[in-house]
Simulated assay, not measured.
Amino acid sequence: MKKTKLILIFVLCLTGFFYTDKSFALDTKQPSKEEVSKLPEDSKEKIYQDLIICLFVPYIQKEVNSYYQEYLTEMPTVFPDSVDIVNIKRESEGGYLIQSELIVHPFVGPYNYVGDDRIIIETGVDGYFKVIKFEHLQSYQLPWNWQHIVKKAY
Rank of each mutant, 00 (worst) to 15 (best):
C13Y: 13
L14S: 06
T15Q: 14
T15G: 14
T15E: 11
T15C: 14
G16T: 04
G16K: 12
F17E: 10
F18W: 14
Y19D: 08
T20H: 11
D21H: 08
D21Y: 07
D21S: 08
K22W: 06
K22R: 09
S23H: 10
S23Y: 10
S23V: 08
S23R: 12
F24S: 13
F24C: 08
A25W: 15
L26Q: 05
L26I: 14
T28G: 00
Q30K: 15
S32L: 14
K33F: 13
E35M: 06
V36M: 15
V36H: 15
L39I: 01
L39T: 07
L39V: 00
L39F: 02
P40T: 09
P40Y: 01
P40N: 11
E41T: 05
E41A: 02
S43N: 14
S43D: 08
K44L: 10
K44N: 09
K44Q: 10
K44P: 03
E45W: 00
E45Q: 07
K46G: 04
K46C: 06
I47F: 15
I47W: 13
Y48G: 04
Y48I: 09
Q49G: 01
Q49A: 12
D50K: 13
D50T: 04
D50V: 00
D50R: 14
D50C: 02
L51H: 06
I52R: 13
I53H: 02
I53C: 00
C54H: 04
C54N: 12
L55F: 11
L55Q: 07
L55W: 07
F56Y: 11
F56D: 03
F56V: 06
V57W: 09
P58D: 05
I60G: 05
I60H: 05
I60R: 07
Q61Y: 00
K62Q: 10
K62F: 01
E63D: 09
E63T: 09
E63C: 00
V64I: 11
N65P: 01
S66E: 06
S66V: 07
Y68I: 14
Y68A: 03
Y68G: 00
Q69S: 14
E70Q: 09
Y71G: 03
Y71I: 00
L72K: 06
M75F: 14
M75K: 11
M75T: 07
P76D: 03
T77F: 09
V78W: 02
V78L: 01
V78Q: 07
F79R: 11
F79H: 05
P80R: 07
V83P: 02
D84K: 12
I85C: 00
I85D: 05
N87L: 15
I88R: 15
K89V: 08
K89T: 12
R90H: 10
R90D: 12
R90K: 14
S92Y: 11
S92E: 13
E93M: 10
G95S: 08
Y96W: 08
